[in-house]
Amino acid sequence: MARGLEGKLEGQVLRTLAGASLAKCVAACRVVGGCKGFNRQRASGTCDLLATRLCENDILLLSSAEADWRYFDMQDASYPDPSHVFFNHSMCTERGMCSSACERGIDQSCTDNIQCQAATENSYCTAASPSSPGVCRCNTHYWKYNATLCIHQTSLDSSIWSWIFKKVVNNMCYVTFTARVKQDIWIHLGSYEDWHSGITQYYFILGGWGNTQSILDRDGTRMVTAATEGLCTNNYQNFTLYWCNGNIRVSLTGVSTFIAWDDPAPFTVNTLGFRMPYTDGHAHIFFPHNLVDPYFPTSVETGGRCAVLEGVE
């Protein structure tokens, strides 16, 4: 059972006991179905058994005007946990929000940064004050992987020599990205769930061969060779890659489509990979939000569609 907290919590009263000792209130709350806490008045022993707990609604606050009342939050014997981040924080000591139930995931309602940070590193609460709830968000330059994981936005620049792969989700079949390169953007679209296996793929080089040509291969066979002299300008340019129903298109904003081929036997694209030459010291690619999940060859599972690939100078 929680430490008693000065004040009274307004909530649904399941039952009222008169002249009850603290022990009797505790015992009654344990047997009354749905009881999660109680208010007890010292002088009279009046005990209101409650169907709600302080942390279940971020707009619930203890009324300091009820000076003769104390609120008790029913928990197991280990509550409050001295090792928990809330234990010595004002959210617990002053506002009674001590339970791990007060933790909040990304996009959930909150009143204090510590509620978000207890569940998710690199996060914060948008609340202006304890009486004005906000929501948990990932810090700047981090994005939501799932409700309890914020991951730093990946910088794809010239220091990254290996391929970086993303998983294609939600039947996505096109992506618009921003690139600043002098030459050579390499892209794979693969049929395989795991990019380590399988060879069915579309392979693109944009602005290759000294920034003079762009190509499309299908499983190692050249399908398109396009003359694209000066395609990459080393300024930020918006490219669109489209593969819906096997209709392969690559275009550049302000420039007509420069790669076009209709695959007579299209496959389902499950992974997208990209790379730039490590010798290009100022190359960056930016992928916008809500397009592809990051591909992690681990047990971590995604909780949403949001992903960012963002270069930082």
Rank of each mutant, 00 (worst) to 15 (best):
I151K: 01
T212V: 09
Q213Y: 15
W161L: 10
W143P: 00
M223W: 13
F258D: 08
T148S: 10
D48G: 03
G254H: 07
Y145R: 01
D48Y: 13
S21Y: 11
S99H: 03
S64Y: 10
T126D: 05
E310P: 01
Y192P: 01
T46N: 14
G45L: 10
C98I: 00
Y174C: 12
N245V: 09
G7S: 14
K24Q: 15
T148F: 06
G208Y: 06
S63D: 14
R305A: 14
L62N: 06
T140Y: 01
F38P: 03
F86A: 04
H282M: 04
S21F: 10
G304P: 12
S78D: 13
A226L: 06
G105N: 08
T126A: 03
G134Q: 05
W161S: 15
V269Y: 07
Q153A: 00
V312P: 03
P297I: 06
G45K: 09
C29W: 09
E229D: 14
C116R: 03
Y242E: 08
L60I: 01
M223S: 04
P264D: 02
W143I: 00
I199F: 08
A20K: 12
R15Y: 12
T178I: 13
P266N: 09
E301I: 15
N170K: 13
W161I: 08
Y79M: 04
N146A: 02
G281W: 07
D81T: 01
K24S: 15
W69H: 08
F258N: 09
D219L: 04
A226P: 00
H196E: 13
E103R: 11
S83R: 13
H84E: 05
A307S: 15
E56C: 04
S214V: 10
Q41M: 05
M97V: 00
R104F: 03
S100W: 04
F296P: 01
S131A: 07
S299C: 10
T52F: 12
L252C: 07
K24I: 10
W161H: 14
G11C: 14
R70Q: 13
T111W: 02
T271I: 11
E301H: 10
L156P: 00
L17H: 08
L149W: 15
G19E: 14
I248H: 09
K144A: 01
A226I: 10
F204Q: 05
H282Y: 09
C306E: 08
